[in-house]
């Protein structure tokens, strides 16, 4: 069942923003103005859109791309080693699309423009085990990493493709930063750019949809 924007749901979204998510896998992000600084020097107005609550998992991805290599026992882990066009194709197969980076940022930081999806303070909990590679968990595993709209894994887990292009490269958002085998959460405004054909074990995606 898809979450529909009706006057009643809009009322609840405005009054109880922290409970705005549906039980479905897609979350409605209502239209509104939000700060985008310091990534952009303007206020962001995005129209209402839906976004996946979780990153796309290996299990979900394998339905559309059955030959994509999947590590044993990783069915619920965020899929990675996916090119931009594969991610885009997957979303289209669901009648969805990749989010723009403005949508992604709005979904991560909310109208108050938080530094992290959960607020402005760094969590005491470590972002990741001390390790040179990614240790993946099932999507949505880290309950504290949740945005004002109820979207999970935007500051940790893996980096995510967006539809936004800069000089022939595609923008990715979110994910972890490795520093000498230690890790920190991404801030909601941080970004990387990659060649669209790139495949990395740290790069996955989630889908969005216009109403």
């Amino acid at each position: 069942m898809k979450f529909r924007l009706t006057p009643i749901t809009l009322f609840f979204l405005l009054v109880f923003p922290s409970h705005s998510s549906s039980q479905d896998n897609q979350v409605l992000v209502p239209e509104g103005v939000s700060t985008m600084e310091p990534s952009f020097k303007f206020k962001n107005t995005v129209h209402t859109f839906y976004m996946d609550r979780y990153e796309v998992s290996y299990g979900e991805f394998s339905v559309v791309f059955p030959k994509h290599p999947s590590p044993p026992g990783a069915k619920l882990h965020p899929v990675s080693d996916v090119s931009w066009s594969e991610a885009s194709t997957y979303c289209r197969s669901k009648n969805m699309r990749l989010p723009t980076e403005l949508e992604w940022e709005k979904a991560a930081r909310g109208e108050k423009g938080w530094i992290y999806p959960w607020g402005n303070k760094v969590l005491k909990k470590r972002a990741h085990p001390f390790y040179s590679g990614l240790i993946k968990r099932r999507v949505g595993y880290f309950k504290r990493d949740v945005s004002p709209y109820g979207i999970y894994g935007m500051a940790s887990s893996v980096w995510e493709w967006t539809s936004t292009e800069i000089n022939g490269k595609k923008v990715a958002r979110g994910g972890l930063w490795n520093f000498h085998l230690d890790y920190e959460f991404s801030k909601t405004f941080e970004r990387n750019v990659y060649n669209p054909e790139s495949r990395f074990p740290f790069l996955g995606f989630r889908c969005a949809q216009s109403p």
Partner: peptide, 12 residues
């Protein structure tokens, strides 16, 4: 604590 994959991750 070194992964067998060893791909350079986003970081510093």
């Amino acid at each position: 604590p070194y992964s067998t994959d060893g791909t350079i991750l986003p970081g510093y």
